[in-house]
């Protein structure tokens, strides 16, 4: 009896260990090295669009001409918006050419930041906050609901190419936890939005997904109708009167 219990416990522990390396890798959408595929290889041509070339000039103008490499993050972001949410290796090479550094210096930056996706994402990339306050308020359930509703795994794109779900670190909305972010790549870099939807519930996120699927717009912010921004539910409970001014010295008396 005791031996069987111990064996079961050991099995459980092994199960946890087996899962461990996967969870630590799951923040980023791709591996730390590149594998050539037909839609992502260095031989594919990639260029900034005519409208974005103006933006590139504008971005570069923020930095001294001998420190062009400082523009790497804004340029990668622009390239990602243009490409529809992800960075093929040829886009990174194009950025390297613009800022006149070796491509590896751009790869280093792109692999470091988890907001640069190096594999395709959906037109709406849904990012669920997974940090402690949101997790305590049920972000795991929200992610499960999203994944179940869309029928995909994390970082996988739905068949129609509309949605993908990822995980994010804290986005600073803890007062309205749990929250998700919707990165909207459906309108290219001109109509790109990156909106927070806060106070979501497993039911509400599915509604949000359906609203987005119908092409409707949804005002960002808290989804709890009884709250105003990050104020308390049902109106203020403190600071009900005008605050008292601070006591000031009588300067004339000095």
């Amino acid at each position: 009896m005791l031996a069987r219990l111990a064996a079961v416990r050991l099995q459980e522990i092994r199960q946890v260990f087996r899962l461990a390396p996967q969870t630590s890798r799951s923040f980023s959408t791709a591996l730390n090295y590149h594998i050539d595929t037909p839609d992502n290889n260095p031989d594919l041509p990639w260029e900034f669009s005519a409208a974005n070339k103006e933006k590139v000039k504008e971005i570069l103008s923020h930095y001294p001409s001998n420190y062009k490499q400082s523009a790497v993050i804004p340029l990668l972001d622009l390239a990602q918006q243009q490409q529809g949410g992800w960075l093929p290796v040829s886009a990174m090479n194009a950025v390297a050419k613009v800022i006149e550094v070796a491509p590896i210096r751009v790869y280093e930056v792109a692999t470091f930041y988890s907001m640069f996706n190096r594999s395709p994402v959906g037109k709406y990339h849904l990012l669920v906050c997974g940090t402690t306050p949101c997790m305590i308020r049920g972000s795991r359930d929200i992610e499960d609901a999203l994944l179940k509703h869309l029928g995909v795994k994390r970082n996988e794109v739905t068949k129609d190419g509309l949605f993908s779900v990822g995980e994010m670190e804290c986005m600073g909305c803890c007062v309205n936890a749990p929250m998700i972010t919707v990165a909207d790549y459906s309108n290219g870099s001109e109509g790109y939005t990156y909106n927070y939807y806060e106070d979501v519930t497993p039911k509400r996120v599915i509604e949000i997904v359906e609203i987005l699927r119908n092409g409707e717009k949804l005002p960002p912010g808290t989804q709890n109708s009884r709250r105003i921004k990050s104020g308390p539910e049902g109106g203020n409970t403190t600071l009900l009167s005008d605050p008292k001014p601070p006591p000031s010295r009588d300067l004339d008396a000095c």
């Binding site: 630590s24 890798r25 980023s28 730390n32 090295y33 590149h34 050539d36 260095p42 290796v89 550094v101 070796a102 491509p103 590896i104 210096r105 790869y107 280093e108 692999t111 470091f112 930041y113 988890s114």
Partner: peptide
């Protein structure tokens, strides 16, 4: 030769060339 770099972050960090 600027081929080698430090890719990724945290415990996933590795030395590599990114593209083969």
């Amino acid at each position: 030769v600027q081929d080698l770099g430090m890719l990724g972050r945290g415990s996933g960090e590795e030395i590599g060339t990114y593209v083969e």
